[in-house]
Amino acid sequence: MRMYMTNQMAYTDALACRLAYEDIESGRFDHLRELDHMLSALALPKETREGTRRIGERMAKLCADLYKSPFIDTYVKQIRQKKVNGHPSIVFALAAHHLQADKKDAIAAHLFSGVHSLIQNAVRAVPLGQTDGQRILLALQPLIQEIAERTETMTEEELGMNMPGLEIAQMRHEQLPVRLFMS
């Protein structure tokens, strides 16, 4: 988890969330669209790219139902028109900005939701008890804060640094006859 968080999550999810939040804040919607395209192109394994896109799309629709935000509505419309792909980190930033959440809190909350869902997957898929799952989540809290803090100092040039071993695992997962979680 720590390895995944300090690399993949930090330089993709956390940094994307920060950049999206800053774009929304300063009204740079062209750049936000570019970020959406970049995130989609950065996901080389098809299953990962498609899974993320589907989650992003559903999350955007959900947020459009929950909140009255013209920015979220625009993003949903752009997804429908295939002008953007839809990415969870961008939707999260849109929702956080709408709720006037602080940028760093938004990044930390986004990391938390990713870590939480992975642990829940593990609770369901491997022999890992609910309590143990919660213990892991609790133990990872300081790292979530640390990454949220560090995200401020990252540059856009560092976005989407891939881990080759993880990518290969994701690619090989596509060819397995049985798959449990697309996320």
Binding site: S40, P45, K46, E167, I168, E174
Partner: peptide
Amino acid sequence: IGFSELKNSGCTIRIL
């Protein structure tokens, strides 16, 4: 080795 399909139906292969 892993391989997958790109957005434009191209092919990507990663090797360790």
